[in-house]
Amino acid sequence: MTLLQKILLALVVLAAVLPMVGVPQYWLYTLTIGLYYAMLASSWSLLVGYIGRISFAQAAMSGLGAYVAVLTGQLLGWPVVPSLIAGVVAAGLFGLMIGWLTLRLHGAYLGLTTIAFAEILRITVTAEHQVTQGSRGLQVRPLIEGAGPVTYYYIFLAAAVVSVLLMLALLHSRIGLFFQAIREDEDGTASLGVNVTLWKSLAFAASTAFAGFAGGLYAHFVQLITPSMMSMQEMGYILAMAVIGGFSNVVYAAFGGVILQVLLEALREMGEWRLAVFGVIAILMLRFAPNGIFGWLETRLKRKDK
């Protein structure tokens, strides 16, 4: 294990004991939201960092997972777990569709197309107010009746850890190798018999399924969802989190999510300026430390070993 891996593992252990050492509820709440963003930032980096496809639909996919989970509960009377699964499946299928429809698009064209998909979805949810209550927001039953902040915190911690571990398992399998080969050179990968079309579509689906899961959990935690969770501003936060943590690694991106959410809360007085500040930081990171804080640390620590 490298030094950085040890540090990150220690942080996870620290996170697990936080509620026991008397951290105020307010900060537990903040960290719980941070863990939601950790899942989103890491699921985004699963796509962008490994297979090299860009998407600005991650917040929208979280929203899709959330609305499907909530509505299957309200309209069809499904229990929480099946409705969460429905959200995951819906987001995964939508991602598969985006992935398949954008197979031949790259760079700016791909990015713009995913923005279009995200906005169509957000506008649809806003407009269908008989079903979704539009921008007034939809009341959501709690994940567990009567559960307190500590319970939610642990559920989100477990969900984030398990999500990231599942992503790592996928990425360390041969499928992860195919993803990275496709990122490096599509024709070269195809020449070796790897079904590039299939894996490009499935990478989208995997990434959005995790986002849908995060969204469903989030809905049942905050218990009121609005279409703003699908906005480009939310997407901006996710992007900044992944970039600042380091989107070439799902673990780094996850930590970026938690750290930035904590900073967002700590800098509350700055209001809307925070997004601008994080945007600038993200741009500077891309220029000077493209692998993010943790990617930068990784190379620094490696160099010291030698």
Binding site: A181, E184, G188, T189
Partner: peptide, 22 residues
């Protein structure tokens, strides 16, 4: 390929494995 299409950010061994693992 005339213009080689090696996977630059993968290791040499990983480059070799992609086709076999397909």
């Amino acid at each position: 390929f005339q213009m080689t299409k090696v996977f630059k950010r993968l290791t040499v061994l990983e480059n070799m494995l992609v086709g076999a693992l397909a």
